[in-house]
Design a protein around this nucleic acid. Structure first.
Lengths: 114, 114
DNA sequence: TGTATATTCAACCCATCGGTTTACAAACCA
DNA sequence: TGGTTTGTAAACCGATGGGTTGAATATACA
């Protein structure tokens, strides 16, 4: 249950419904019902998704009368971006020499067959 | 089973063992036993993890005598970085207002399917 | 007061996940 | 040939995940 933060963030993002919720929240805050409206699943299921996102730190829920207003917290996305940056050189500076490039081209057989 | 590519990548990264395997592969290719050595779980479990990574497109396994050599394929990480970039404005200070953000998003037309 | 609205809690169902153990396949080695 | 090494396949198990329905809670409103 005490999963590390990185795993929690990745797991939260591994569901298309939750990613859609985040995309919606990127355009501004919303209540649970507003978030649930476009989806063909129950409001309870959306509420569960929001709990997952909240535990991953990706959203913040604030109480306001009988509504819970949700807003995106981009901090975990920033650290995620930094994590991915670790691997940047593997696709950026991947080819140190022309030989590397040619060898890779040959191995992967990317050239069009004549 | 027919999960979308983004979900497969995020789900693959949601496990610390698999992220450790990727980190190891970032330093160079390795066989299954070499990858399994540091972990306190069975080689079979590692083999399963590799299957998950392979299905997500994060690694490539090539046959070589009785060994399976694994190497990292950074392509999904690049698209993941692009996905995260969508949200950069939310933590960047270069956007003064939400309007700025939305206008930029629209102009660059980065909207990916969730 | 009572009722409608918004949201969560709780119990349940079934599929998937991460791990195990056992068995199997393929390639090398003697 | 037989044995060893390397890796996967298969069957199983307990835990988790995403969904449901039904009940509970909290706030606004008449």
């Amino acid at each position: 249950m005490t999963t590390d933060p990185a795993s929690a963030v990745f797991a939260a993002l591994a569901d298309p419904t939750r990613r859609a919720i985040l995309a919606r929240l990127a355009t501004g805050e919303a209540t649970v019902n507003e978030l649930a409206e476009p989806f063909p699943i129950s409001v309870q299921a959306i509420s569960k998704h929001l709990t997952v996102l909240e535990r991953a730190g990706l959203i913040v829920r604030t109480r306001e009368a009988q509504w819970r207003r949700c807003r995106l917290d981009p901090a975990p996305l920033r650290t995620l971006a930094e994590w991915v940056e670790q691997y940047r050189r593997l696709w950026d500076d991947r080819y140190d020499t022309l030989d590397d490039y040619l060898r890779d081209l040959k191995e992967n057989n990317r050239g069009q067959a004549p």
